[in-house]
Design a protein around this nucleic acid. Sequence first.
DNA 1: ACAGATATCCAAAGCGCTTTGGGAGGTTTC
DNA 2: GAAACCTCCCAAAGCGCTTTGGATATCTGT
Lengths: 343, 343
Amino acid sequence: MAVNLKQLAELLGLSQTTVSRALNGYPEVNAHTRRRVLEAVRATGYRPNRAAQRLATGKARSIGLVMPIASGIDSDIHFGEFLAGLAEEAVKHDFHFVINPSAPDDEEATFRRLAASGNVDAVFLAYMRANDPRISILKSLSIPFVVHGRSIGGPRDYPFVDIDNTRAFYDATKLLLQLGHQRIALINGPDYLAFSIRRRKGLMRALDEWGLRLDDSLVQYSEMTDEHGYRSMQRFLQQPDAPTAVLCSSTVLALGAVRAINQAGLVIGRDISLIAHDDVLPMLKPENFSVPLTTTRSSLRAAGARIAARLIGGILEQGDYPEQELWPAELIVRASTGATPGR
Amino acid sequence: MAVNLKQLAELLGLSQTTVSRALNGYPEVNAHTRRRVLEAVRATGYRPNRAAQRLATGKARSIGLVMPIASGIDSDIHFGEFLAGLAEEAVKHDFHFVINPSAPDDEEATFRRLAASGNVDAVFLAYMRANDPRISILKSLSIPFVVHGRSIGGPRDYPFVDIDNTRAFYDATKLLLQLGHQRIALINGPDYLAFSIRRRKGLMRALDEWGLRLDDSLVQYSEMTDEHGYRSMQRFLQQPDAPTAVLCSSTVLALGAVRAINQAGLVIGRDISLIAHDDVLPMLKPENFSVPLTTTRSSLRAAGARIAARLIGGILEQGDYPEQELWPAELIVRASTGATPGR
DNA sequence: ACAGATATCCAAAGCGCTTTGGGAGGTTTC
DNA sequence: GAAACCTCCCAAAGCGCTTTGGATATCTGT
């Protein structure tokens, strides 16, 4: 018993115009009438036909999402978590996604197709790289978009939500330095990604201020899997002058790192300190590690939700959001950080 | 310079009807006229407005996807891979997804909402459990759907694409038995999932035929992560009468298992044999393992693409697919399987 | 009490496509 | 040569919503 606007209007003895306006919050409707309409909607279970709305308004109520298929990114656990946030928010407003898989070298064409298709009102962008070409492409396509993260170099005036990676790892490093650590290593994400670059910068800056030099043999880049964390940590531990403290770009990496440390017979927080960035993955809580992890925390899912909200707000022309948001990451000290051994 | 049907028709000196028919492959159009239309489409870059098509045809051109958000499933690497296949196929036909996140206990309501909303033509279902209630729900909602996997128990007449898990693990076990192994362990997926249950059954059946009994202390269930594979294998190796061969439900699990084996100082293929199920994850190829892995192979991505194709075919009422497909998994013997040690 | 606001509501015109119901002209059929 | 068919095309009626451009009625202030 799916009703449509016309039937609903008839049932109420009103015109479609008035009912439509009552539903869409226009002011020229008597409060009492509006209440009646809302009541009837509840009673009949009326739901507006989206296709008709789209045709009439020109808004597709959907946001485009280019999903890289080549590398391991798409199957990445972090991506899934972020997507969950996006989806959660989108579903509240009855928005859809158009997921376009694309090989990295085909991205530009994919974006063009997406924009031209008219199937999406806005586009979302992530996994920013240094000098990322996609920003200029999207600007030229004149389709609204919001970026998760920031590029490095290139145009600066585009909407984004990012966390202050430099600051987060600067703070983390500072803590370690104050605890007396001098050789601090970094198990980072892929080296071409902007957040990796910034995290390294944060580390370097803090070292600089302390009068220390970053030793590049103490930085490892890789995809953020448990396995890579394990291997990177092993490599560090085998070095002649092994680090006494390690920064991890993800709790997933930390998982592997911890295993390597344990296997080497070392005790976390005593023999070696560990700080990881925590994306708040529901299945991997830093407080549940055998030794609870000191972390820089910022929820990936929240970022996803926020970006969805901004995208949708922009399309519906409601809500007011800052163009650029730089979220701080919270430094949470737990048991995995301690004073330098033998001091 | 976006043209619409009307303008295109005018430009050609034809009626909208004829142009529409030419484009949609109706027979009552002269071949020559059709060619002219197609040519004009190319020249003008005409693209039909989807919203209008939807309104006129009643088809939303989108498929619904309920994404579990509670457990680790959504961030699961296997899910991402499957999704890639779905998306790849969908984009070919300009189909969308409506991703609905849902807590497991809210699934029924989510499905109802999805079906009632009218913005999906069909629904896709995965992560089947034993006696899965979702099948009946979807049937009662009378919305087309295709299942990835099969339930166990409950109604049998529903469309699915599944791989023959029982058979795959039966074959794998058979191979191990022929090689002389008697104590064969299984590192399985979550115990409530249908495929896990079937794989265990395959193992058990082969053992039975060989006159052996399945020792339930040799079966571990867990989410399919590297970490869990590691732990499960460790547990097996610590047992007094450790297995000489192990079956893994995923190459991801095998990754951890291999680590545990190496760590124990054992040699794969000599001291202990390993067979894993290979979902053909692009980032994890069994032939690249330090000891190339014997596997039962079936591409998850291909399954995703197939399901998308069937769903879309059903909506568009074209193409003819079998209702139920049970794909065989290919047994590929590599170096990780060898004769029982000390025989 | 009357011109000008103000508050509510409505009829009708799209949005861009598909589809129904013909209809003109040319071919067959008997 | 008339009746019966094809073949190919068209006009117009929707699909279900939003929005424009009034109407009508009720208030204002003077």
